Computed example of a mutant assay.
Amino acid sequence: MSVQDSAFSLLAKIIKVISLKNIAIWSFAALVVLVGYTVFENRGPLVSYLVNGPTINAPSIIGFKVSSASQARVKQLVDIDDLINSIVIMNADIRNNRRVPLYWYSDDVSVQKTLDGTYAGLYGGIPLFTAEEKNNENVVGVINGEFACSEYAAGNTAVFPGLLSRMPFICRASLPPYYGQFSGFVAISLNRKPSPDELIVLKSETLSISTEIFFRDIVPSQHISKYDK
């Protein structure tokens, strides 16, 4: 190989090395710019993450009011069924561990007075989960959309405090009566333990009321759809 050929070969290698180096530098610079732009565009969430840590996607409270039609439906069921002592409609906020009584009714004047004294003005609600293990089991049950009944003492004092002698048995159903959109629950106090046949009827009526309240009162509050009140 001549000196001239060697010189051209060396020059070609130098140009190739310089070109690859430039490509690498420009690619790295472009990557830095892209990352910097992404960070700048998402600076709010990133700062929040660094300051407050990761966000836990827990269900939050879904505020709603029990309509007059739903109240009338609850009253009708309590008044015509001798088995039922009272019904309480609870809103629930899992994130802040609160249950908020929205509406309650009993055809027993003394029980109604006790419920009024317990719930009236209780806008901040009461704890959803407590130190009582059975209460927490009941709460998990309604979150999962279960309908269940149990004796008063089995975790029900948080809903019906001091009323053991008046309502020995309590049933609960989720709002709505299925898993996925938990907004609260319906608690029904009974004058006695229901028979198997009575329990079937009671479950049907409770799930019906829960469904009606969900579509009549809860869904419109979230602007999902309309329901004729």
Rank of each mutant, 00 (worst) to 15 (best):
I94F: 07
R166P: 06
A158D: 08
S208L: 03
S208V: 02
S189K: 04
N138C: 00
G155C: 07
I143T: 11
A153T: 10
I126L: 07
N96L: 12
S86Q: 04
A158M: 13
N191I: 03
S210F: 00
I87V: 06
A131D: 04
Y178K: 14
N97V: 01
Y105D: 04
G145Q: 02
G180I: 13
R95L: 09
F160P: 08
E133I: 13
L199G: 09
A92T: 08
F169N: 09
E137M: 11
R192Y: 04
D116C: 13
K134Q: 05
E212P: 00
K193Y: 07
Q112T: 03
M90L: 09
V142T: 04
D107N: 10
T206M: 05
L202Y: 02
L164S: 13
S204Y: 14
V139M: 06
V159A: 07
Y178M: 05
E132H: 11
V159E: 10
S165A: 14
C171I: 03
R172P: 03
M167Y: 02
M90P: 07
D197F: 11
S86K: 01
S165F: 11
K203D: 08
S165M: 08
M167S: 06
G162V: 05
L175Y: 05
I188V: 13
R98V: 00
L207N: 07
E205V: 12
Y119W: 09
Y119V: 06
E133N: 08
P194S: 12
V88S: 01
L163K: 02
G141M: 05
S189Y: 01
N96W: 12
N156S: 12
N156H: 15
A120H: 13
G162K: 10
C149G: 15
F169A: 01
E133Q: 13
S165L: 09
T157I: 01
S189F: 03
N91A: 13
N136T: 02
G117E: 03
Q112N: 10
V186S: 00
I209E: 00
